[in-house]
Design a protein around this nucleic acid. Structure first.
Lengths: 220, 220
DNA sequence: TCGTGTGAATATGTTCACAGCG
DNA sequence: CGCTGTGAACATATTCACACGA
């Protein structure tokens, strides 16, 4: 199987499958069909089959997928099978929320280090991770083998933070700062901008009256 | 101009244009070209022109766009010109971060109410908004004319929260709970799932070795 | 002449329909 | 026979290339 290039959208669905498979494994369901996964995830069965087929044929025709096996496969595809280390930069409200959230759940992506510039925050703990000074960032990230960076600093600090993470060897970055960031080839950057999400949502409400005064004239 | 259906992706770019235009207006740049917007946003000039053209022709050929005018137009398209009210449900760490973030910046999407089930949180303030009991949700949302709901509650409470918001008249929802939610036709739902974002990021690191042991055999 | 506005070409992603195999 | 795996059809989104008008 010459591996086709895999849609980014498909990668985003894998963690959803993983979550559902974990749930089903707890419920001791040994075999699962694409129809059942569709039921639980909200995606279509064809799409699920196609997503899985990108990585090989792990189902049994006429039967379905082995729950435990599929879960392990997806975990491995994502690189979660032996834990990936992430570093959080910025221990403000958002950073704090992210850290609490990630530390309590899933150990598969593990927040291994937290950094902040504020001397008052340095030395405090979030969960059982001690907040360090950003001056230690490069050394710690390199030493701990951190692969993922999470940027939760003000926009004005975002680029320098990204640069430091990249130069310390981080390969993928999740950025929450509302800024256009540059990363070198080979580093994956994902932006989540809460302002954009909120503002674009307004478009779908009745507050947005796009040229409603305009007369629509149809002529063939 | 028979209005074409507008790509969701284009709507997501509008707030970015808005941000850049505000910045340029502060810098008193009266006219802006698609090339300059491209420079500042990271999108391509053609894409920017196409996005703007969906809503009409507000540029001047050979010149560019009037900064202030374009800003007002986009603000109006999004429905932000006279402020849209949002309600936040769930004043945990994430909810708190979102509220602080939204309350400090932009008044265009305004957090008009915050709700939580925890009696210890009810009555406290975030910024100058008092946290209310969720039992008041429907009444307050309806009365205040809230159009947008923000769901930052545990997954187990998410569906009931959405149902309450919808029945109170909310038209668009931003959901942070890791759950598959149902909304009726006509209500727009946007999910942001931080676990998914983090886990899918791992795929783009060297931790993910997708069948690297597999031998690639090419035969025509 | 310059930068907008836009159909046409391309690329990316999803759904359909069915062949293939346990 | 049932459900997976997959090419082909379709839908959506981006990029190209150029006509158009201030």
């Amino acid at each position: 199987m010459r591996r086709p290039k895999i849609p980014e959208a498909a990668i985003k669905r894998l963690p959803v499958y993983l979550r559902v498979l974990e749930e089903m494994q707890e419920q001791e369901v040994p075999i699962v069909s694409s129809a059942e996964l569709a039921e639980r995830t909200g995606f279509s069965p064809e799409q699920i089959r196609k997503d899985l087929a990108y990585f090989g044929a792990f189902g049994t025709r006429g039967v379905g997928y082995d729950t435990a096996l599929l879960r392990r496969r997806i975990s491995r595809i994502l690189g979660l099978h032996q834990g990936v280390k992430a570093a959080l930069v910025g221990a403000g409200h958002l950073g704090y929320a992210l850290a609490r959230y990630s530390l309590s759940k899933h150990k598969d992506v593990q927040i291994a280090a937290i950094f902040d510039v504020d001397p008052l925050k340095v030395g405090t703990r979030i969960g059982d991770v001690v907040v360090r000074s950003v001056s230690e960032l490069e050394q710690v990230v390199r030493q701990e083998g951190v692969k993922i960076g999470i940027v939760a600093v003000p926009a004005s600090e975002a680029q320098r933070t990204v640069d430091a993470l990249v130069s310390a060897g981080v390969e993928a970055i999740l950025n929450f700062a509302p800024a256009k960031l540059k990363v070198p080839e080979g580093v994956f950057l994902q932006n989540i901008d809460l302002t954009i999400e909120l503002q674009s949502l307004a478009y779908y409400t009745s507050a947005s009256q796009v040229e409603e005064d305009e007369v629509r004239v149809e002529q063939p």
